[in-house]
Amino acid sequence: MAHPPEATPEPAAGVNEITTPVPGSATDQVTGSERSTGRRVQRTVNFDQEVLERARAAATHLAAYEPAAGVRSLADIVNPAVAAYVAELEREFNRGEAFRPVHRMPPGRPGKRT
């Protein structure tokens, strides 16, 4: 579908990055072919600038012009992508099992192993 150059969609709900905690609310999240109900929480994550810009542009465009895509926010792109990558890491490095849960990640980057 062609759009006139002056047509600029309004930002989709949830596209702005917010770093304050959000009180938990039960929401349906669709990940691949699985459907799970989980609490959504906000975290600050550092993205490569180009990746973030492309994802924000995709979320904004799809929310405004392509409702069949099912993307209404940046989270609709990020959640399934992270879930798929974690599943791949579990298969490759943990015999397909979920990694042991952690309550708090250590700050900063881990030191180099020799």
Rank of each mutant, 00 (worst) to 15 (best):
L89N: 05
A84F: 03
R95G: 11
E90Q: 13
R39C: 07
E6I: 05
T114S: 07
V86L: 14
P9C: 01
T19H: 12
E10W: 03
M105S: 10
F99I: 07
A98Y: 13
P101C: 05
R35Q: 11
R72N: 14
P106E: 00
Y85V: 10
R35W: 04
D48P: 01
V86G: 04
N46S: 07
N46H: 02
E6F: 13
E17A: 10
E53V: 00
G32N: 05
S33L: 11
P106S: 07
Y65S: 00
E66L: 02
V15Q: 00
S33Y: 08
V51Y: 07
A64E: 00
P5D: 13
Y85I: 08
E88V: 07
E88K: 04
V71D: 02
A69Q: 14
P9H: 04
N46I: 05
E88C: 04
P67E: 03
A2E: 15
V102F: 10
S25A: 00
T20R: 03
A69I: 03
V45P: 00
S33H: 09
A64R: 05
D48L: 09
E10A: 15
D28N: 06
P5C: 01
S73F: 02
Q42C: 00
V51K: 05
E50F: 13
F93T: 11
R43C: 14
A69E: 11
R104E: 13
S73M: 00
P21S: 01
E66R: 04
G108N: 12
G24K: 02
E10S: 13
